[in-house]
Design a protein around this nucleic acid. Structure first.
Lengths: 343, 343
DNA sequence: TTGTAGGCGTTATCAG
DNA sequence: CTGATAACGCCTACAA
C-alpha cells in the first residue's frame, strides 16, 4: 500500500540533470539557486535545457535537510470563515511568495485550549517553519509558549498590550478611540459598546479604550453588551439596546455584529441613524451595502498580513528591511449609519 | 547572515534521543511513528521519556526524504477575501489534519494567467505536495496541466462539466435549477440573471442551467447581466434591472452581488420582494441579515472543502474510503427576498 | 568556473 | 522485539 510515486518511476534528481547536461551535480545546484556569477552562461544554458527536458524540480525536503533552511512560514489560524482571516491570509501569502517563502497553515478550533495552540505550533515547527504568524489569541506568557517563541520567531497580526513593541501591527486602542470620538463629536452624550468575543485580545483592548475615551470626557461608561463577532450576537445585542430609550449611539466591535444590531433595532421600530447611530469595525466588502451603509473603522487586513509576514522574514534573515512594511493605520470611514442625535 | 538556527545550537535529533534512552535510532523511529506492536511497552516508555526531556520533534523534511512521503496537501487559491475561499479552506484543513496531513498554500492573483497556475502547481510539487486541491478555475485540458495532474493527484472543489466524474463536488447546475424553479413556481413569468465572474467555471455552468431551465418551460431567456461576484457589480446590475419595469425576478450568482443589487433597486424606488424577487447563491453568514433577508441557495463550503481533501487523500493512499465523505448538496433557503409577483 | 567529499535526520530493509 | 546499514536528494566546504 501507499505507493511512493503515483505514475511511472521516481522523479528526476539533480544527478539525472547533471548527467544529461554533462556537468556535476553541484553545478546543477548552483544554477537552480540562481547564483549568476558562479556559472558560465553557456553551462547554465545546458543545465537549464536538461532541467526542462527532464521536468526536473528541486526536492524541497532534500534541500531543506541539507541547508538547514526550509523557507517555510507557518500560520496558525482559527477555523472560521470570517472575512478578516481570509484577507489576512492573502497578505501573508503575498509577502511570503514575494520573498521566496512558502506558507503552511495549522488551524485550531475557535475557542481552543492553549494546548491546541501549542500543538499547532509544534506541528508547524515539525514541518520546519522558520517563522510563525499567530493569527489567534494565544497567551504568549506561558513558559511553554515562551520556549517556543524563543526558538522560532513568531509574531501577531494585531497589536495588543501583550507585545506593545509591534509597531507595524494595528493599534486596537486607536480603533476604539476613532469610533468613540466620532460619535461623541457628533453630539451624543454617551456611547454603548457591543464587544467582540472576549476570547480575542482585541476585544478587551477595544473595550478598555472605549471606556477610557468615555471617562476622559467625564462620562461614566454604560455596561458592556457582550458579543462574539457574529451577526447573531449583534442581533441579540440589538434587542437589548432597543429597550433602552436613552441609547442613541453604539460602538460595535465588528461589521458583522452591526448588521445584526441594525436589524434588531429596525424590528423594534428604531431607525438608524435617526434614532441611534452605529459605528463598527473592519470595513468588510459588504459594509458599504448594509442598510444604512455602515460607518466603520477600517482595518487594512491585507496590509496587516503583509506586514506580519515581512516582519517575520526580516527577523529570520536578520535583516532590517525586506521591502517597505506597509502602513497599517486604522481609518474611520464615515457612511450613513451615524448622525447627530435627534434635537 | 542567514543564521541556521535562531537560538542556541541545533535541535535534538533521533540519535540524541536514542542515546539518552539507551536504544537504537531505529527504535526511536518506531516509537515516533506509533507502531504499537513492534516495540515493547517498557522500551517505548523509556523512549518517550527521553523525547520529552529533550523536547525532540521529528524533522519532517528528513522523514519525507527518507520515506518518500511528505503528507503534505497543496491548495491553490486565488488571492481574494471572499467568504467562500475562507470557508473552503477551513474544511480542507480540517480533513487534512484529521488524516495527519499538513496543508501548504499557493496563492495566485485573481484573473491570473494559466502560467501563474502552472507556477503555483510547480511550487507546490516542489514542496512535496502529494495531492493538490484546485481552488481556482484552471483549464485542466492543456497538455502542461495534464502532465501535472497525472503526476500529482488533483481535484476541484466544485463540479463542472470539465470533470463530471467528481461525484462529491457541488453540482453547479443544480444550484441554478433550484433558484429558477423557486422563482417560476412563485408565479414569475421569467427570471433575469446576474452572472458571476466569467473567469470562474461556476458562472458559466449556472448561466447555462438557468437558460435551460427557462427554455424547458418555454421561456426565452432575457439577456444575461454581467457581474463579477462583488457587491459593486451587483449594484451596477441593479441599476440596469431597475430600468426594466417588466423584470420581477432575478437570480444573482452570489449573495454579495445580491446585496448590491437590492441596494440599487431600493434607490430606484423598487422594493424587494414586492416589486422584484431576488434569489442568490452561497448563504454567507450575513445573508440572513440583509434587508430583506436573502432567499439563497446554500453551498456547504466547509463540507466541500472537507470532501475535496478526503477525495484526494483517498486517491493518494489508494484506499476507497477515508471516513465518510460529507454530503454537498446545495439547498434552497427561503427567506424574505422572494415573493409572488404583484397581482 | 567547476568538481569532489561528506553529511543533514530519517526510514526501509534485513539480520539477529 | 531490536539493531545495523544503506539510502533519500541536496547543499556546504573545500579543492582543483
Amino acid at each position: 500500500m501507499s505507493p511512493r510515486r503515483h505514475s511511472q518511476e521516481r522523479a528526476p534528481s539533480q544527478i539525472d540533470v547533471a548527467r544529461l547536461a554533462g556537468v556535476s551535480a553541484q553545478t546543477v545546484s548552483r544554477v537552480m539557486s540562481g547564483q549568476p556569477q558562479s556559472v558560465r552562461p553557456e553551462t547554465a544554458r545546458r543545465v537549464l535545457a536538461a532541467v526542462d527536458e527532464l521536468g526536473y524540480r528541486v526536492h524541497a525536503a532534500a534541500a531543506s535537510l541539507a541547508s538547514g533552511r526550509s523557507r517555510i512560514l507557518g500560520v496558525i489560524i482559527v477555523s472560521t470563515d470570517r472575512y478578516s482571516s481570509a484577507a489576512l491570509g492573502v497578505g501573508i501569502e503575498q509577502a511570503a511568495a514575494a520573498n521566496g517563502y512558502t506558507v503552511t497553515t495549522a488551524a485550531v478550533p475557535d475557542h481552543a485550549s492553549s494546548e491546541a495552540f501549542l500543538d499547532a505550533f509544534d506541528r508547524l515547527e515539525r514541518q520546519g517553519a522558520e517563522g510563525i504568524v499567530l493569527g489567534v489569541p494565544v497567551e504568549l506568557d506561558s513558559p511553554a509558549m515562551r520556549t517556543r517563541t524563543e526558538r522560532t520567531p513568531s509574531t501577531r497580526s494585531e497589536r495588543t498590550s501583550m507585545d506593545p513593541d509591534a509597531p507595524h501591527a494595528v493599534d486596537q486602542r486607536a480603533i476604539a478611540r476613532l469610533a468613540v470620538d466620532h460619535l461623541l463629536d457628533l453630539g451624543h452624550t454617551t456611547v454603548w459598546h457591543v464587544a467582540g468575543d472576549t476570547f480575542w485580545l482585541e476585544s478587551d483592548q477595544r473595550r478598555e479604550a472605549w471606556e477610557e475615551a468615555l471617562r476622559e470626557r467625564g462620562i461614566t461608561p454604560p455596561p458592556v453588551i457582550p458579543g462574539d463577532w457574529t451577526p447573531e450576537s449583534g442581533y441579540r445585542a440589538g434587542r437589548t439596546i432597543a429597550e433602552i430609550p436613552s441609547a442613541t449611539a453604539v460602538f460595535a466591535s465588528s461589521d458583522e455584529m452591526a448588521f445584526g444590531l441594525i436589524r434588531a433595532l429596525h424590528e423594534a421600530g428604531r431607525s438608524v441613524p435617526e434614532d441611534v447611530s452605529v459605528v463598527s469595525v473592519d470595513d468588510i466588502a459588504l459594509a458599504a451595502y448594509a442598510s444604512p451603509a455602515l460607518t466603520t473603522v477600517r482595518q487594512p487586513f491585507e496590509a496587516m498580513g503583509r506586514a506580519a509576514a515581512l516582519r517575520l522574514i526580516a527577523r529570520i534573515e536578520g535583516k532590517d528591511a525586506v521591502g517597505a512594511v506597509p502602513d497599517v493605520h486604522p481609518e474611520l470611514v464615515i457612511r450613513a449609519s451615524t448622525a447627530p442625535p435627534r434635537a
